[in-house]
Design a protein around this nucleic acid. Structure first.
Lengths: 127, 127
DNA sequence: TATAGTGGTTTCCCATGGGAAAGTACCCTG
DNA sequence: CAGGGTACTTTCCCATGGGAAACCACTATA
């Protein structure tokens, strides 16, 4: 994404930051279950692989949205929690959830209408 | 993204719908410049290729977020505009813009702090 | 006749990223 | 001494998607 486009659409940086794959499910789980260990997180995200979970957690930590606490014990113990900065995203997530509840059915209906119209065209072209 | 994860994080469907690459810049331009022709849109999104612009516009049309109007003239003329359903996203975009203005600097600071700490570690390991 | 302009489509290519599976270092337990 | 648990890391592979460039039918214009 070029600078020109970022200027044309100021929400793009936030998209790269918050809405890339797996970041919102992780933040969601951290917000709703509190402080969790690596394997607990993995259990809450059944299809994520450890490699990707590590990558996303590092990114969230670097961006200040999650906090990683390393306990130098044997065996080692690591805990992750959402940060204050991460919690500022809560109203955003609520707004999206609300929009979803209010308007996703309309999107679904639009898709069905569009697909039905395309099928209509095809059968008309054939018949 | 599996059903289990979609249940674990209800905003995922909206992400796939609205926050995939190029969809928000396009909606943004359509909202701020009104009804536009294909080449006008392309001029507002300087780095997008016609192939991708077509793909995204088709997707937006199918999802009911944009409206395509074809005028069977010579030369043909096509106009795109944001739909009423697409306009319901405006508060969402505003919320994201507000969050961006309020908290992106904190993210940037967190990144610098994280990177600085990592460099510190490296020089410590070397020296 | 050549060129431009319309709204795309088609082909090819390549980088990115995610998934699977195995490995790693450490120690405790049986 | 084998196996398990912790929190990853590493390697390999492959699908997806985006970008570049050329092409398309049609007509008005020079």
């Amino acid at each position: 994404m070029t600078d020109a486009v970022e200027q044309a659409c100021p929400i793009n940086p936030v998209i790269d930051l918050v809405f890339s794959r797996w970041t919102t499910p992780i933040l969601w789980v951290l917000e709703h279950h509190g402080r969790l260990r690596f394997n607990e997180l993995q259990r809450h995200l059944p299809t994520i692989t450890p490699k990707v979970l590590t990558q996303r957690l590092r990114q969230l930590e670097r961006d200040g949205l999650a906090v990683r606490t390393y306990h130098a014990e044997i065996p080692p113990r690591v805990e992750y929690e959402i940060s204050d900065l991460g919690r500022t995203l809560t109203p955003l997530f609520s707004a999206i959830t609300d929009w979803s509840a209010a308007h996703l059915p309309a999107v679904s209906a639009a898709r069905h209408a569009y697909d039905a119209a395309r099928e209509e065209e095809e059968s008309w072209a054939q018949g």
